[in-house]
Simulated scan of single mutants.
Amino acid sequence: MPRKAGTADEGAAGQLAPRRSTRLTAALAAVGASVEPGNVKRPREIEETDEVTDAGSKKAKSTGRKTKEPKEDASDTPAPTLSPIDVGDSLPSFVLKNEQDEDVDVATLSAEKGVVIFLVPKADTPGCTNQACGFRDSYPDFTSAGFDVYCLSADKPAAQNKWKTKKELQYPLLSDPKRVLITALGAGEGGKTKRSHFIFEKGGKLVDKKVPVKPVDSPRFAYEFIKTLPTV
């Protein structure tokens, strides 16, 4: 059968010009790409955002964001420990903050006088305020007997200072946030503080303790015991 005459689309070698895909043409037109022969790119190539290195490998595009290093949380630091303190033992050398955020070595508290340290579960709560105000009102009796008074809790110095100002407490407050001294005294259990009080004679030896004790009884029991001690 005789061949049909060649059309104008045939090249010099008698080959037909490549057909353009309707689907590809539409995709390229949507992104404004040229559809001239030799300038055709597949949609995936157009959307490619990776850079190609000289070796032909792809390198991810940098976002320019810096990775933040996690900060160390002071609360994650293991708490130090003290040996248990019982009747007959002395106050250890251990530094706490007072309500003014000042360092206080508890071993120095009884250097010149006896000391009463009473413990409260939480500052500015009803029971603790009752106990603290009881020591406030009887404070002259303790000082006349040769004893200083300190309040000890796990509250932060700022909270203690606010409570001290609010209730006009004339004695210092000590902050033991990790309950190190509180636990050594036998008044820390399950992340809580047991209401209690401890009496140390001059020189630092523990001579009496009440764990637990009722808020209203704590100041009275402490003073009654001090009155039984021989005067120096």
Rank of each mutant, 00 (worst) to 15 (best):
R3E: 13
A12F: 12
A12W: 09
G14I: 02
P18T: 01
R19L: 11
S21P: 02
R23G: 04
R23S: 10
R23L: 14
A33H: 11
S34F: 07
P37L: 13
P37Q: 10
V40A: 05
V40C: 02
E48I: 02
T53F: 00
K61D: 11
K61W: 06
R65S: 12
K68H: 10
D73Y: 07
T77K: 15
P78V: 01
P80A: 08
P80V: 03
L82Q: 10
I85H: 04
I85G: 11
D86E: 14
D86F: 05
S90L: 01
P92A: 09
D101T: 12
D103E: 15
G114L: 03
P121G: 09
D124H: 00
D124K: 06
G127Y: 00
G134F: 05
Y139A: 12
F142I: 08
S144E: 15
D148C: 04
V149Q: 12
V149G: 13
L152N: 10
A154L: 07
A154C: 14
N161P: 00
N161M: 02
T165E: 12
T165D: 13
K166M: 02
L169C: 10
Q170C: 15
Y171E: 13
P172R: 13
D176Q: 13
V180P: 08
A184F: 01
G186Y: 09
K194A: 06
F200T: 01
G204W: 04
D208T: 04
D208A: 15
K214G: 00
P215D: 08
S218Y: 00
Y223W: 02
E224Q: 14
E224R: 09
F225S: 05
F225Q: 07
I226R: 07
T231G: 11
